[in-house]
């Protein structure tokens, strides 16, 4: 019929499904964190009783170094994977896991000191409430990230061709970077502004 005169159909360049999906997830998570951050900022200095942040908070320098450098190591792991250097991938991936675990351990030590030694809990005052909930929310994301990192590590050492899943490894590393970025915000809000 009139087909001959039809203009050509525009071929679309559409983004990858997973890319858009993970960006959406990170957006939603950011909105979640934003509310906890706002609550923290709102309640700074509003506690009716001690202990106050300046009394007990210490800069978690070592923990922060661990977590932030794990962002670098996961990039190294990814690079190794794209170049099909499986040995390098496994080593960098394991270091990432260890760094993440060390961060959690440091958080655990801090919380043990607060809860066990100082009897400073989530119900002590507004500082306790907002501190544990914000830091805890972040730590729970580190845990989720670690579980997935371990999963990837586990299937890799048991012989699964992880190179076929490069895309998904990339999304996991994005999530991990996001968790790191949130830590920068949490660190700034809790340990710098809030003190």
């Amino acid at each position: 019929m009139a087909t001959a005169t039809l203009p050509p159909v525009q071929q679309l360049k559409q983004p990858d499904k997973g890319t858009v999906g993970i960006i959406c997830l990170i957006m939603a998570e950011s909105a979640l964190f934003a509310i906890f951050v706002v609550a923290y900022l709102f309640y700074i200095g509003k506690s009716l009783n001690g202990p106050y942040p300046k009394d007990i908070l210490e800069y978690p320098i070592w923990a922060s170094i661990c977590l932030l450098s794990s962002s670098a190591t996961i990039v190294m792991a990814e690079r190794a994977l794209t170049r099909h250097r499986m040995g390098g991938f496994k080593i960098w991936w394991a270091i990432t896991i260890l760094l993440g675990a060390e961060f959690l351990r440091q958080t655990g030590i801090e919380w043990y000191r607060f809860i066990h030694n100082l009897h400073f809990t989530v119900g002590t005052n507004l500082f306790g409430t907002t501190f544990y909930m914000l830091v805890g929310l972040h730590a729970s994301h580190v845990i989720v990230g670690l579980i997935f990192l371990l999963l990837v590590f586990g299937v890799t050492v048991s012989g699964f061709p992880i190179a076929t899943q490069e895309r998904r490894v990339k999304f996991l590393s994005w999530y991990w970077h996001f968790v790191d970025a949130v830590w920068i915000v949490v660190f700034t809000v809790v340990y710098v502004i809030g003190r």
Binding site: T121, G123, N125, L126, G128, M133
Partner: peptide, 8 residues
């Protein structure tokens, strides 16, 4: 607030 005794 309801389960952990937080104070939000």
């Amino acid at each position: 607030d309801r389960f952990l005794g937080a104070r939000f």
